[in-house]
Amino acid sequence: MATSRLATTTAVRLPPLPTISDLVRLYRLRAQKQLSQNFLMDMNLTDKIVKAAGPLKNGYVCEVGPGPGGITRSILKVGAKLCVVVEKDRRFLPGLQLLGDSVEGRLRIIHGDMLRYSGENLFPANSITEWNSDPPNVHLIGNLPFNVSLPLLVQWLHHMSNHTGPFTYGRTKMTLTFQKEVAQRIVAQINEPNRCRLSVMCQYLCYVKHRFTIPGKAFVPKPDVDVGVVHLVPRIHPRIAHPFKMVEKVVRSVFHFRQKKCKRGIAILFPRERTDLVEEVSRYSGIDPTSRPFQLTVEEYARICDVYANICSREPGIYEYEYR
């Protein structure tokens, strides 16, 4: 029994390979500013990111934006059965292929843009688990370029709400890097200065945790900001039981005037002359209309959505109404 436990935690030894720094020099790779690229060369840090994802042995991983492959090596080193990397920049493909050739089918390389890639059909059907059971041994991991991190996260949240894309396998866990300020916004609780609509959208669908911060000086080239590593696990039951786009519209509207009373944001959900509907939301949701948006709990946003959905079901054209 002791031997079996030891085997599950022993790292897989990779064959001798050029270091990440060697690959960067060999293929003359330079981070492109327009793509918000920053390389993480320190394998201790890539190992730490992978450890934050949880046990990956015999698991399946989709890594987004592997670049020169530092995190990829850490994923393979801990014994993932298959790592699928999605890389938009073809300059990194030869170095990734060199790594793939050394691990006998455990690395699959997709040249493409994750924003245009559904993330379905990546892994075998036997990796799928029921949504209401434990999360599958399937993971999304990525040192995301700053310019696509938020669009990707919102896209994944939408997929999560519908159990599509990477979430066809069940409650796929995500371990992702963001600018430190964005990471703080994702996990911010009520009354905290970084509380925003992103906080509510992530927390109504996920358990979120800011694992640790990586100083900017650890990256090449050094960004102007530090980087936060965030772990997100989908909830079995979302805390707001309405379609993603409706929730996003309500939360976006309320936070439109972040420092104003939340009643001001609720008002832009409706035509200007329908003050009666604004009063209805305030009255039946049970919220304090003088509260600021960042002072409302997820449950209070859920009640606002409940009343708004009821109004939309009986008032033609209200859901289609846009403030601007």
Rank of each mutant, 00 (worst) to 15 (best):
W131L: 09
A267V: 02
Q295L: 09
A241C: 10
M114F: 15
T164A: 13
G112W: 03
T172D: 07
L6Y: 11
R185T: 10
E273R: 13
K173E: 00
G286Y: 08
V230Q: 00
T129P: 00
M201S: 04
T164D: 12
T164Y: 02
S161E: 01
I266N: 00
I71Y: 02
P223G: 08
D113Y: 03
M201K: 02
R272S: 14
T10W: 08
V50T: 04
N143L: 10
R28A: 13
P221M: 05
L140H: 05
F294H: 15
L76F: 08
T172G: 05
H210A: 13
I318F: 09
L198R: 00
Q155Y: 04
R283L: 13
F270V: 02
G265W: 00
R264N: 15
R258H: 10
I190A: 08
T19A: 11
T129A: 14
N143Y: 05
L17W: 06
L205D: 04
Y169C: 03
Y319C: 01
F146E: 11
V233E: 14
N58M: 11
F178M: 07
R171K: 04
T8E: 13
R272G: 12
V61Y: 01
V230H: 00
A218S: 15
P223D: 11
E248W: 06
S4I: 14
I304L: 02
D22C: 10
C196N: 15
A218W: 02
L23W: 11
T168A: 10
K57W: 05
D101M: 12
M201W: 07
H159Q: 14
Y323Q: 09
K57Y: 05
E279G: 05
N147C: 12
R195D: 09
C202K: 00
L198G: 02
P145L: 06
D22L: 07
N137K: 15
C202Q: 00
I318G: 03
R283Y: 15
P293H: 04
G119C: 07
P136Y: 08
F219P: 06
W156L: 14
R252W: 01
M160F: 01
G105Y: 05
R324N: 12
N58P: 03
P136C: 10
